[in-house]
Design a binder for these strands. Structure first.
Lengths: 344, 344
DNA sequence: CTGGTCATGATCACGTTAAACCAATAAATT
DNA sequence: AATTTATTGGTTTAACGTGATCATGACCAG
C-alpha cells in the first residue's frame, strides 16, 4: 500500500540545515582538503543523524563512471562458476564495487544480448567467461573498443586481444596425464570439450605432449570430444569405449562431471577402479570427495581466479595502480585420490 | 592505453541531427502516442545507426527508480543458492532488470553492511535469504520502511512482517518422516539446523507431527542440532550416535550435506543402508544422484523459488499488477532413492 | 596595500523525462 | 458559415542529486 517511497535525504537538505552550500557538504563528505575540520565533522555527524546515503546514480552520472562490475558467465549454478562469482563478489565489495551478474546459458545469442545490456548499464568493467557456442567476438570487441576494461576468465576467446586470467591448461593437462602414466597407465583416453574453445585445445595438447614425453604413441581413437561434458555423456561414452575393442586403462577427463559418468559406468559394468581403469578429472569439484571411489582431479582455483580477475579489471585503465597483466596464470595441482592411485 | 572512453551518443545528438527537440527523441524511443509515426521511425533508425543506448543512470535518476534488483544471500557457491540466483537472474533479465548480488557469508555483520550498500544503490527491490547468524532485523526493517519491496526466500525472519517465498517446511518434513516410517523405520533420528531459524523449527515440528501421526513416541535423544550441517558434522554425529546405546534405524537430515556425512560414516562402519539404516535428506542437491547408495531427498525447487520471488518483488508496490501474496509456498515432493527404499 | 592562504559559495553540466505549453489542422456545434 | 472544441505532433522548461570549476571574501604576513 505504501507505494510512496520516503523522500531521500540529499546533500541539499544537509546544506540548508547547516547553513552551508551544497558543494561544501559534498566536499566535506569526501574529506576534501579545502574544507575546515570542524565543518567536516559537523557535516558527517548530521549526515549520520539524518541517515544520508550518497545517491550513486547521481554521482555516477556526474562522474561519468559507475562503481559496478559486470559479470557475464554461462551459468551461475555450476560449482566452478559459482565459486568464481563468489571470489569476484567478495573482492568487489572490499573495493567498493557492486556486481551485476548475467548468464548466457551457454547460448551465443544470450551472450550478445546480455553483453549489450551490461554495456548499456555503463559498467566500470566486465568479467567474462564465454558461452560454449561462442565463436565470434564482435559483441565483446565493441565493449573493449569503447574503453571499458574487459577481463576474460577461464573460457577465453581464441584470437581476441585482451586480458586473461586462467590456469595453465597445457601444463595442468600434461601433469594430469603424467600422473596416470606414473600410475602405470599405457592406453589413456581423453575426454575433451568443444574443440573451438581454447582451453580444451590446450588441454588436448597437454595430453598429447605428456604421452610423447613418455614415449607413448598417441592413439587418435582414444581421443573423444564432448559437447557438454555431462555425467550422462561421460557414462555413455565410457560404455561405448568399453564395448569396443581394445579399451583404455586410464581416462583423463577435462571436467569432473564426465569423469563421474565414467566412474558410474565402470561401477555398473564391474570394471575395477583404479586397477583396470584409472580416472582423473578436472576442476576438483566437491563431488570428487563424495563419489566412491573418490575422484582424482586437478585443482582449479575458482575463487582465486575471481579475485584476480577483479584485480586486473580495476588495474586496466587506472594509471595509479600497477599495470594489469595481459595474462595471469594461476597455479594448479594434482589431487590424487582413490580413482587413480594404484598401491605399489 | 586508451584510457579515454568513447563519447557516448545522447538523445541530444540525435535531436540536433534530426532537427527535433530532445524530448521528442525521448518519447519517440518509447513509442509515445503523441509522436508521429514517421518521426518515431526516423528516430529509431538514426538511434540504431549511431549506436545510441539510453543512459540508464540518467534515466533512473530522473525517474527516481532503478531497474536493478538486489539479491542478498549467505553464499553464492552453494547448490541451492546458486540455482536460486539462476532463477532470479533469468526472470529479471526477461523483465528488463539487472541483478546485483552480494553475499553475507552467513555473517550478521556482513549482512548489515551489504544491506546498506544495496540500499545505497537505490535498488528497485531486494530479495533476501538470511545469514545463519541473523537474529535481529533492523537493517531490513529500515529498507522495508523506506518503501522498497523486500521478499524473503527460504531463510525467512522470525517475527518480521514481510513477503515470503518458501516451501511448506512443515509439510515437507512431515512427508519425509512419513516416508521413512512407511519404509518400516521406528527410531528416526533428526538432523536439524540452527534452532532460531524458522525453517528448521518448522522442519522439526513436521518431524514430530509425523511421529505422532503414527503413534510413535518422540525420543528427545534422537533430535540433534547442527550449526552448519556440513558433511563433516553429519559424519561425526552419526558416528557418535552409533557408538552410543540404542542407535536409530532411520535418519531424516534437514539438508543433504549432513545426510551425505551419515552415509559416509555408515559405509565406513559397515552399517547397511537402507536395511539397518534408512536415510533421507533435504534439497535434492545434485550430489544425491552421485553418492552410493543414492540419497533420497525432498525436492527444493530453487530456480522456481527465484523466479517466484522476483515476480512477487515486482508486484509489490505496482498497482497495475495482481497484488503480491504475503506468503507463497511452492510444492515439494519425495524423491525416493536407494538410501531409503527397502524392497518388500 | 599587496599577495597568499584558508574556507567556502555559486554555477553549471552529466543525460533523461514528466509536465506544461503551443500551433495548426480537423471535426463538431450552433 | 462562423465559432468552438478536439486531435495531432510536437516544443520548452525544469528537475532528479552530485561534483568540477571558477569565484569570493576574510584574515594575516610582510
Amino acid at each position: 500500500m505504501s507505494n510512496k517511497r520516503k523522500k531521500q535525504v540529499t546533500i541539499y537538505d544537509l546544506a540548508t540545515e547547516l547553513n552551508v552550500a551544497p558543494s561544501t557538504v559534498s566536499r566535506a563528505l569526501k574529506d576534501h582538503f579545502s574544507i575546515g575540520k570542524e565543518t567536516i565533522i559537523a557535516v558527517k555527524e548530521l549526515a549520520q543523524k539524518r541517515g544520508y546515503r550518497t545517491n550513486t546514480l547521481a554521482s555516477s552520472l556526474r562522474k561519468q563512471e559507475t562503481n559496478t562490475i559486470g559479470v557475464l558467465v554461462p551459468w551461475v549454478n555450476r560449482p566452478f562458476i559459482s565459486s568464481l562469482i563468489s571470489g569476484i563478489e567478495a573482492a568487489s565489495r572490499e573495493a567498493g564495487y557492486n556486481v551485476i551478474i548475467s548468464q548466457s546459458q551457454d547460448s551465443y545469442e544470450n551472450e550478445v544480448t546480455n553483453a549489450k545490456a551490461l554495456f548499456g548499464s555503463r559498467i566500470h568493467a566486465l568479467i567474462v567467461s564465454l558461452a560454449m557456442e561462442t565463436t565470434t567476438y564482435d559483441h565483446l570487441e565493441e565493449i573493449i573498443q569503447s574503453g571499458t576494461p574487459v577481463v576474460f576468465v577461464d573460457r577465453v576467446p581464441q584470437q581476441l586481444e585482451g586480458y586473461r586470467v586462467m590456469i595453465d591448461n597445457f601444463r595442468t593437462a600434461r601433469e594430469a596425464t603424467q600422473h596416470l602414466i606414473d600410475q602405470g597407465c599405457r592406453r589413456i583416453a581423453l575426454f575433451g570439450g568443444a574443440p573451438h574453445q581454447v582451453i580444451y585445445q590446450q588441454r588436448e595438447y597437454g595430453y598429447r605432449t605428456a604421452l610423447q614425453d613418455n614415449g607413448l604413441a598417441v592413439d587418435e581413437t582414444l581421443i573423444h570430444t564432448f559437447n557438454r561434458l555431462t555425467i550422462e555423456e561421460g557414462y555413455r561414452l565410457t560404455q561405448q569405449v568399453f564395448e569396443g575393442p581394445n579399451p583404455p586403462d586410464g581416462i583423463f577427463s577435462t571436467n569432473d562431471s564426465a569423469a563421474v559418468g565414467a566412474i558410474k559406468y565402470a561401477r555398473s559394468a564391474g570394471i575395477k577402479i583404479p586397477e583396470q581403469l584409472a580416472i582423473i578429472g578436472f576442476n576438483d569439484d566437491p563431488v570428487c570427495e563424495i563419489i566412491e571411489p573418490q575422484l582424482s582431479s586437478m585443482t582449479h582455483p575458482a575463487a582465486d581466479m575471481g579475485r584476480m580477475a577483479l584485480q586486473q579489471a580495476l588495474r586496466i585503465a587506472n594509471p595509479d595502480s600497477p599495470p594489469a597483466a595481459r595474462r595471469v596464470n594461476l597455479d594448479t595441482q594434482v589431487i590424487a585420490r582413490a580413482s587413480s592411485l594404484r598401491k605399489g
